[in-house]
Nucleic acid binder design. Structure first.
Length: 345
DNA sequence: CGCTTTTGACCGGCGC
DNA sequence: GCGCCGGTCAAAAGCG
């Protein structure tokens, strides 16, 4: 859920208490260890406790407000989503009847239909904003486009460096794919392979894999849609059956967080760069995280690598505003629950 | 035998 | 209307 575009819920949960702690004079802290008068010590502790209590109350009330806001936003989101689903399901039968017997090709013009930004903002004007002269066929095509747009809400482009001599277009990404076509395109002499997710029958995800025209050792995979099932196996971060030949993986998610994994370094762990970009076109901002580490067969199994991966995930999560919002809601919820049970703060 | 891959044919959008 | 092009279908072949 992406309501961060509506309410700025990004919280730095660690910053509030720091000023309070800084208020405590250094000498008093040191007095804990030097054994000065007990009375003075008690005074300092009392003041500190009072400040902390006050700060805690303030943070708690802030969290409560934020939780309420989040609840309202969630309710609105769910209501709008249900409305849209209901509308689409009622239109579904009509549209399918009209297209029966012939393969209908999608219209790629997105200008008059929702873009991901509008979808994320639940802008229902897209559905209901047609002019009154619109014919029923317009409604059908609009509905169809909407459904296609819903399926194609997420387009992810993944590129990875492989051995140039390896001509296969197999990308081991943890999902089960069935190849249904291959084509040589005009702009690239390398054939493009078309895959469908074969794990779940209803899974709408498609994948196109083609070698880069500039560097044929780079395989570019384009994912359309989102899986409605978990991964079938662990991704091996590489192309082809020989995973040791894969050395670079770039992931670009259109209209969503962008994660770039640069796996080209030699056998040293190096955190090269870590940044966060905020795109004006994306409702939640395009978060870009670039890390550098190594692939290389057995190295991925080493504890340092595993530890590094965990750290990277943790850092990515803590930098993600939506994760912060969810965490803040969870913590405040727990606090409120605890307060309700104990009847005190 | 069932599933996957290959590959030529087909379809529909688009530009001229 | 015609040809080009990207995407998809489906029969045949391959494979375990």
């Amino acid at each position: 859920m992406e309501f961060t575009s509506l309410v700025d819920t990004s919280l730095d949960l660690s910053f509030r208490l720091r000023p309070v702690l800084e208020k405590v004079p250094k000498q008093e802290v040191q007095s804990d260890f030097t054994g000065l008068s007990r009375e003075r010590e008690n005074m300092g502790v009392k003041n500190e406790a009072g400040d902390l209590l006050e700060e805690l109350n303030r943070v708690s009330s802030e969290n409560k407000k934020l939780t309420e806001m989040l609840t309202v936003v969630c309710e609105n989101y769910n209501a709008l989503r249900n409305q849209m689903m209901e509308y689409m399901s009622t239109q579904n039968g009509v549209a399918e009847d009209s297209s029966a017997g012939s393969r209908k090709r999608k219209a790629e013009s997105i200008s008059n239909i929702s873009n991901p930004v509008n979808n994320n903002n639940n802008n229902m004007d897209v559905v209901h904003g047609r002019s009154s002269e619109s014919s029923s066929s317009d409604e059908e095509s609009c509905c169809k486009k909407l459904r296609e747009e819903h399926i194609k809400a997420k387009v992810t482009i993944v590129s990875m460096k492989t051995d140039a001599s390896d001509t296969s277009l197999i990308v081991k990404d943890g999902y089960q794919w069935r190849k249904y076509g291959q084509k040589v395109t005009r702009d690239n002499p390398c054939p493009r392979a078309y895959f469908r997710c074969s794990f779940a029958p209803g899974c709408p995800v498609k994948k196109k894999v083609q070698r880069s025209i500039e560097d044929q050792s780079i395989v570019v995979a384009t994912y359309e849609g989102e899986h409605n099932h978990p991964q079938t196996s662990k991704p091996e971060l590489g192309a082809s059956t020989n995973t040791s030949t894969a050395s670079r993986l770039n992931v670009t998610t259109i209209a969503g967080p962008t994660i770039t994994l640069d796996l080209t370094a030699p056998k040293t762990i190096e955190k090269r760069d870590m940044k966060m970009n905020h795109s004006t076109t994306s409702p939640i901002g395009a978060n870009s995280i670039r890390t550098t580490t190594t692939t290389g067969g057995e190295y991925q199994n080493r504890p340092e690598f595993q530890q590094f991966l965990i750290e990277q995930m943790a850092t990515s999560l803590t930098k993600d505003p939506s994760f912060k919002a969810a965490l803040a809601a969870a913590i405040s919820g727990k606090i409120l629950q605890h307060n309700n049970q104990t009847g005190r703060w």
